[in-house]
Design a protein around this nucleic acid. Structure first.
Lengths: 193, 193, 193, 193
DNA sequence: AATGAATGAGTATTCATTCAT
DNA sequence: AATGAATGAATACTCATTCAT
């Protein structure tokens, strides 16, 4: 009986690709590097992915899905809108920490690859929807005012992204999260105005 | 008498580079395209810029400087912090509209080219400083609470960046600006809480 | 009890190889294609043939041998030199009809693989010898003039090869055969000269 | 003023390609070899030819055209059909001598590259037509009997091709030529029959 | 024995950079 | 100074061959 395609080999490749594509621009990330990192023959990569670009996107999607899974766990049972926003911020920030460059593209809203846009968009929407739901729940609870949830969610994501590049040391994560959520919910206006 | 490097030729190249680098990833943007667009021989580009990367960064810096000039004009004589933030948001949004992709990198805080980081950083700081100053002035005027101006400025920039990718039609610019500044200053919390 | 190499599996592979190598140049004919066509695992092919080149030549030799067998049957009991030439022409033409491309190489006298040359040569000689014998018999019978039988045989084979690429429809086979043999025996000179 | 594309560079590449593609199968003929032989950078080849296959066909066509030119010179002023056939045979044989492998494809009537077939066919026809014309003239002069000139021409070309692979030493050229033309015109039938 | 997943040597092709004019 | 022809280093991708099962 022959060897069969092992899903874990595909996993290893995706993992390796995520690492390699993070930290250097696409054209400097070599398939050879991915192969070496995944401890896999170069040809093997091409058994699983048609082209370098395919691999690149697969790696992004894969990372995205990991993030989604982490978020699902984190948000479970938390109903308070503000706290949900906090968890989202914390989760996204800490998750994208090591994959900063990969996530640059992922979170950025480049539209350079129209063919892949759909799938990427789906993932972005998934995150965005979590934020929107928190906002809408807040509005329902009369904790938030009635803003456009979609716009609000995007702006919130924008803050997270920006925070990501503030490159906090570990310890600053909490502060950063509360700053983001604080500004997003209270604004920077002076109390009592 | 030998001809000398003409500044307008350099301008043309930078202009062309900005266009070409916008809308396609670095490795798909060809020097040939830039040369063609600038109506200049390929060799000529290398009289003005050492490498493709140099040209790339020069184009970014050039665009950045154009933005700064536009901002300087717009902010002149406006002293109200909130209004200054509004103008910054509006100016950045409308300016980066056509150069969306170039600005993605520009505003993003990738740190892939450590050698160039300094100059880029300087430009980013220039914009950031304008935001920080508005925030600090607001704090001084007791309109804003005492937040970390640097962090605040980054988060504000993050919202602008996000708004940029919401791709508003022309008409939505004002709404978007007021949404950004509204959330940034008042937060989304319900009034009267 | 271990299974053993089955001759019919080897047959299937050779058959498939003949098909695949026909109709596409060597470097475009893939082992995968042969395996698929033979409904056999790729590894299996390497149990029967050392290399792709080996398989290629084996396929040629195999086809050649089929032709030889067909010729042997056809020539049996026919003693007239002219009629023998006719049968050879007809047999070769009809046989190579479906394997036109494979035979192009087979009949062509490339000398690119000196190591294999010997075996190929042996096969070519086998056919050639049949022609030579017919010629020699004709000379013996005083039907033909005393030409160099080897050269004559080659030229005769060349005409067949050329005829093959004239791509006659089925019906033209007889005409073509008689044209070849007619020219070869009578020439195109006007009668009575 | 910039350097301009020099036709002689293209010539050099075609010349080199003809040499390299002769004597080894397509997939073993390396672009690097062609570049080295033409004393030209590898990239230069791609300035003149889109792909390796393009180069290959261009080399064939080029060789073909050289042959045609040689034939035109040789046939000038010779009106006797038999002598014209002789000259054609001699010219083709001696010309394709060194380019044997290249001509294998050229003369062979493979139809593997349908897109290029047209141009190749045009060249083959050009040679074939010369033979046909000689045959038709012979018929007109009542030196030849009324055969199908097209078929006759192909068979004649087939003999030449076969002769080419008989690999005569220099000295055998004349004999070979007269054997071919002899058989083609008189056949091998015994005189007086 | 048979299989097909895995491998990596081998190469066509691209494109930034150079340089003759 | 300006040009674009020439260059070759760099790399994605293929596919014959191997080998674990």
């Amino acid at each position: 009986m022959p060897r069969i395609k092992t899903p874990d080999k595909e996993q290893a490749i995706l993992e390796a690709a995520a690492r390699v594509f993070s930290g250097r621009p696409f054209h400097e990330a070599l398939i050879d590097d991915v192969a070496a990192r995944a401890r896999v023959g170069k040809g093997t990569i091409y058994r699983y992915f048609q082209t370098k670009e395919d691999l690149f996107f697969a790696a992004i999607l894969h990372s995205f899905d990991e993030l989604s899974a982490a978020l699902a766990v984190s948000l479970e049972r938390e109903t308070s809108p503000v706290k949900r926003l906090e968890r989202i911020a914390r989760e996204v920030l800490s998750f994208s920490w090591e994959r900063r460059d990969l996530f640059a593209l992922l979170l950025s809203d480049e539209r350079r690859f129209p063919e892949r846009e759909e799938e990427l968009q789906k993932r972005r929407e998934a995150i965005s929807r979590l934020v929107q739901e928190a906002i809408l729940e807040g509005i329902r609870r009369r904790e938030f005012r009635g803003i456009d949830a979609r716009v609000g969610a995007e702006l919130f994501r924008g803050m997270i992204r920006a925070a990501n590049s503030l490159r906090p040391r570990e310890e600053t994560l909490d502060e950063l999260v509360s700053e983001i959520v604080g500004i997003f919910t209270h604004g920077i206006e002076r109390d009592g105005r």
